[in-house]
Write a protein that binds this DNA or RNA. Structure first.
Lengths: 338, 338
DNA sequence: ACTGGCACTCGAGCCACCGGAGTGCCAGCA
DNA sequence: TGCTGGCACTCCGGTGGCTCGAGTGCCAGT
C-alpha cells in the first residue's frame, strides 16, 4: 500500500510543515528534499496518502497538511528520537543542581521542561500510593490539637491537623508515635491499609478513639490527596503558536487549569517509555489540536509519577520526545539521591 | 479647574468604556447618562479633560478613552467600592469550606479570586518572616541524615535535609530538639536570629558543629525562601480580553511566570487597605496596559502576605476592589481558625 | 454659559481585482 | 507499469478604491 517513497514523502511533509508552519506543496518538497523524482510523481503519491487519510488539504489548491493519523505514523515509524545536545544536557544539570526540597525539584523541573521544549510543561508530584513512608510524626499544637506529619522517601511531606477531645500528655503521644511508626515506616503506602486499620485495637480504651482518628486521617490523606497534585508551567509559550489553535488558546488554557483534566492527560503510569497522544487521541476535547508527550519518572526502580508537555499537534516530535525522556531520567536520579 | 460636571463626565466615560470596550463619544454619553446638557457642551468638557491628560483619543475623529491618569482619578475620587452580592458571599464560603491544609487554602483562594473577578489571580504564601514558629522537629532519616521540619502558626511547613558527619543517637537528638524549641517556639521568625546564632555555644563540643549546621539551615530557610512563594491562577481569563493588550498577552504571561516579578507587583505589605496600581504605575514594563489590585491579608492582627488580581487597565475597579477586599478578609479568618 | 448647526476627518467594512501557488489530469516516454 | 512535462483550473490572500457613519472642533446665536 505505502511503499518506501510514499513514506519518505510523508516524513518530508511532516518535517517541512513543522518547520514552516505552512501547507507544503509538491514543488516545495522536491526542492528541499532529494527525492529523485519530479513534482508530478510526488503529486500522485500525495493523492494516495490523502486517500488513506494521512494528509489533508485545508482547501482545494492549497498544499497538504498532516492529519493526526499522519503524525501518528510519523511518530511510530518514521522518526528517530533526537538526543539532546551537549549544551542542553549541561543546561539540565545547571538548572537542577541546588534544589533544596521536593517542591523545589518539581518546580524547577517544570520550568526546565518548558524552557527546553518551548511548550507547556506538566509535572505530577510523586504519588503517595507508590511511596514508602519514611516517618510519621505526631505533635501537639495549641494544647488540644494534634498535627500529623507524614514524610515519604521522596521527600514529600503532608501534614494534617485534628482536634483531640482531651488534652494528651507527651509520653502517651510518644508511645503512639512509636507504635504507628513501627507499623508503617519503611513500608509502601499502598500496603499499610489493613495493618493500620487494626492498630487502634491494640491500644487502651482511653486512647483508642484518638488513635482511630489519627489512622483515619492517614488513610484519607492517602486516598484523596494521593494523586492530585500537578504543577503547570510555561503557559506563556502558548502565545507563540497562537495561530495553531483554531479557536485561540482560551479553551486550552481553561482545560489546563483543571487538575483533573491534567491528570488524565498525562495518562497512566507505565514504564519509562515516552508516550505520545496526538490530537483527538486525547481524552479531553478542546485538546483536539494539541498533542501530549509524557513519560513516567522513577524513584529507584519504580515509576512514581508522570511528567510531560502539551503543544500543538504540529510540534517537533523527535526533539520533544528526546527532551521529555532526558528530563524524566534526570529527575529520577535527583530524587533517588536526596 | 475641574467642576462637578466635568468629573461626572469623566466618571461616565470610564463606566461606559469599561462596559462597552469602545471609545465613547459625546452623543453616546448624553444618551446613556442624565447629564442635563447637550452633546456640544460635553464636547467642550471633554476638550478640557483631554488637555489635562485625563482622557485621550486613539485617533482624530474617534471617541475618548480614559488615560491612566483618568483611571487614577476615577479610582481615588469618583467611585465607591461595590460590596459583594449575597450570592457572591455565599460562593466564597462554599468555595473555601473544607480546605484541609495551608496549600489547599492558598490554592482555593487563587481559584476563587480568579473566578470572582474573571481575571488573573495571585496569592502569596504567608511570609515566614512574619510568622511565629510553632514547633521545630528533628528526625533522623536513612541513618546519617537529619531532617529539619519547621512548622509555623499559619500551618506552613518547611523541611530541609542535612548530612550529619557522625551518626547521632536518639537521646542527643531529643535534647537538641528540646533546646532548640525552647529557644524559638512561639517567637516571631524575625526575632529569633540572634538567640539562634548563639545556641551552638551552649552545646558540648561534640555536638556543636551539628547544631551549628542545623541553625544555619534554619536561618537560610528564613532568608531565601522567606518571601518567594506565589501561586498564580486564572490565566485562562487573559484570553477573554485579548484585544485589550496591544501586543497580545505573550509578554504579560511571561512576566507573570517570574516569581520575582509577581512579588514586586503585589507590592509591600501594608494595612488591609486595597491598593491599586494602574498601567505605567506598575514596576514592570510589559504591564504597562495592566492594572494590579492587591491587598494584604492578615493572620490575627498582623498582615502576613498579599493577594490580588491582574487585569487590563480597563477593568471594573469598584467590583474588583470589592472582591479583593472581601477575599482578603475571609482568608484571614480561615487562617486564624485553623 | 449653553446650544444647534455645519464642515471636516478618519477608520471600518465592503467589493472587485489580480497574482501566485498548488492541484488534477492527460498524453508521452522509458 | 511507472515516471514526467504540460496545461487548464481553483482558490486564497493581499491590494486599492469606495462609501458610510460616528465623532470632532468651531462658530454664531440665544
Amino acid at each position: 500500500m505505502l511503499d518506501d517513497r510514499k513514506l519518505a514523502v510523508l516524513r518530508a511533509i511532516v518535517q517541512d510543515y513543522v518547520s514552516t508552519r505552512e501547507p507544503v506543496g509538491s514543488k516545495a518538497l522536491v526542492d528541499r528534499h532529494d527525492l529523485g523524482v519530479s513534482p508530478a510523481t510526488i503529486r500522485n503519491d500525495m493523492a494516495v496518502l490523502e486517500e488513506e487519510g494521512y494528509i489533508a488539504q485545508p482547501h482545494t489548491s492549497a498544499g497538504r497538511v498532516p492529519t493526526d493519523k499522519g503524525y501518528r505514523l510519523f511518530v511510530d515509524r518514521l522518526s528517530t528520537i533526537k538526543p539532546l545536545t551537549v549544551a542542553e544536557r549541561r543546561a539540565i544539570q545547571q538548572f537542577m543542581e541546588g534544589a533544596v526540597d521536593l517542591d523545589d525539584v518539581i518546580h524547577r523541573t517544570v520550568r526546565l521542561l518548558a524552557q527546553l521544549t518551548r511548550q507547556v510543561a506538566v509535572v505530577q508530584y510523586p504519588s503517595l500510593a507508590k511511596m514508602t513512608l519514611r516517618h510519621v510524626e505526631l505533635l501537639t499544637v495549641g494544647g488540644s490539637r494534634i498535627m500529623i506529619v507524614l514524610i515519604t522517601n521522596s521527600g514529600r511531606v503532608e501534614q494534617r491537623i485534628i482536634e483531640s477531645t482531651a488534652s494528651i500528655d507527651e509520653s502517651t503521644l510518644a508511645d503512639m508515635r512509636a507504635r504507628i511508626n513501627a507499623t508503617v515506616s519503611g513500608r509502601r503506602y499502598s500496603e499499610i491499609g489493613p495493618s493500620l486499620a487494626e492498630l487502634p485495637l491494640s491500644f487502651d480504651h482511653d486512647d483508642r478513639s484518638l488513635v482511630r482518628s489519627i489512622v483515619a486521617v492517614m488513610l484519607e490523606t492517602l486516598i484523596d490527596s494521593g494523586e492530585e497534585r500537578v504543577v503547570l508551567g510555561g503557559t506563556a509559550n502558548l502565545t507563540g503558536f497562537g495561530a495553531d489553535f483554531p479557536y485561540s488558546v482560551g479553551p486550552l488554557l481553561e482545560a489546563l487549569e483543571e487538575q483533573v483534566v491534567l491528570m488524565r492527560l498525562l495518562g497512566e503510569a507505565g514504564g519509562e517509555v515516552v508516550t505520545v497522544r496526538i490530537g483527538h487521541e486525547n481524552p479531553h476535547q478542546g485538546l483536539a489540536s494539541a498533542s501530549v508527550v509524557a513519560s513516567s519518572y522513577s524513584l529507584g526502580d519504580e515509576a512514581v509519577a508522570r511528567l510531560g508537555v502539551v503543544g500543538p499537534t504540529r510540534m517537533d516530535y523527535p526533539g520533544t520526545i528526546g527532551a521529555v525522556r532526558a528530563v524524566a531520567r534526570y529527575v529520577g536520579q535527583i530524587l533517588a539521591s536526596s
